[in-house]
């Protein structure tokens, strides 16, 4: 009895302070944001404590008052963010998959070193990595110098400030996110199965579609989700490489807080991002459960 009570006290000692901290400074802010998304924006940038669903109405279509009007541009930016994040996932999958395959076939010592090399850039400052791409893509940059040097083009091509630059930048930044889960499932691939498949007369392409791809699906899904989530709400990459031309939902949210000063509307936009992420995770959980059954 005495022992049990001491255990409980120990447990409370360990859990107490961190739990209170997270309750106040993690759950608290998220709840405040949820509440704000249903409030009326004040005229001078503050907030009026009056319930309003028009923040969502402005995005999704039912708002039609003098100050709060539906504008399809918001939904357009949201859809574009979904598309750019989706394209980032596809690109990083295509870039990482063969590389993960290659590394998984190395000798153990070289393999560890190769994985170390893929992981290392994750620790290099994000802003430094993006700056590197500015140097490469700008009109006087490395790429244009090269292209003009070999005579492919006579005038510099504007690579920066385009969807291409943003997708390239996000792919580059999130490669470790895609690579590691992919590698995890490719490494587990049973060589005997591949051999059996080719012994039974399957071509390489058939073996890939029927054996390799299904076996590595968990890694593909896992990598895709953790690449998609930070891409969707990203606003650093589009603001450095996309300029004012490629606006993503993250930039729109930032504007609501730092220039437009419409916090309730910004909160509603952020809730849309949250909703998309949660929906994705629920779908993934469903798929994982069905896979187990």
């Amino acid at each position: 009895m005495k022992l049990a009570r001491r255990k409980v006290l120990q447990l409370i000692g360990l859990l107490g302070a961190p739990s209170v901290f997270l309750l106040v400074f993690f759950c608290g802010p998220l709840l405040t944001m949820l509440v704000y998304s249903f409030l009326t924006p004040g005229i001078y940038g503050g907030v009026d404590w009056v319930f309003s669903h028009l923040n969502y109405g402005r995005i999704l279509g039912w708002a039609d008052t003098r100050y709060e009007k539906f504008d399809p541009v918001f939904l357009g930016i949201f859809l574009r963010s979904l598309r750019l994040a989706g394209l980032t996932v596809v690109t990083s999958l295509l870039v990482s998959y063969p590389a993960a395959f290659w590394i998984s076939r190395m000798s153990p010592g070289r393999r560890d070193f190769a994985i170390f090399l893929v992981t290392l850039p994750f620790f290099v400052s994000l802003i430094v990595r993006l700056f590197a791409w500015v140097l490469i893509l700008r009109p006087t940059g490395f790429l244009n110098q090269g292209l003009m040097g070999i005579g492919i083009t006579s005038d510099p091509i504007e690579f920066l400030y385009s969807d291409f630059a943003v997708i390239l930048g996000m792919t580059y930044v999130f490669i470790p996110f895609m690579f590691l889960p992919l590698y995890g499932s490719i490494e587990k691939l049973d060589i005997a199965q591949l051999e059996a498949s080719s012994d039974l007369g399957a071509t390489r392409v058939q073996t890939f579609w029927k054996v390799v791809l299904p076996a590595t699906m968990p890694g593909i899904i896992g990598g895709s989700i953790i690449t998609f989530i930070p891409s969707l709400g990203n606003f650093i990459v589009p603001s450095v490489l996309g300029g004012a031309k490629v606006l993503m939902i993250g930039n729109l949210i930032e504007q609501q807080f730092l220039s437009a000063r419409n916090w309730p509307f910004g909160s509603a936009l952020a809730m849309m991002v949250m909703a998309a992420v949660l929906l994705l995770l629920v779908v993934q959980l469903r798929l994982a459960r069905r896979g187990d059954a």
């Binding site: 400074f25 993690f26 802010p29 998220l30 405040t32 944001m33 930070p230 709400g233 910004g266």
Partner: peptide
């Protein structure tokens, strides 16, 4: 708790950032 500890890692950082901003000001 094990699940809870995953949430801040998958939360898009802009969402957490503005939520904290609103909270501190409020």
């Amino acid at each position: 708790y094990r699940t809870l500890m995953m949430v801040p890692m998958i939360m898009p950082d802009i969402v957490l950032g503005i939520a904290l901003l609103i909270f501190f000001i409020t």
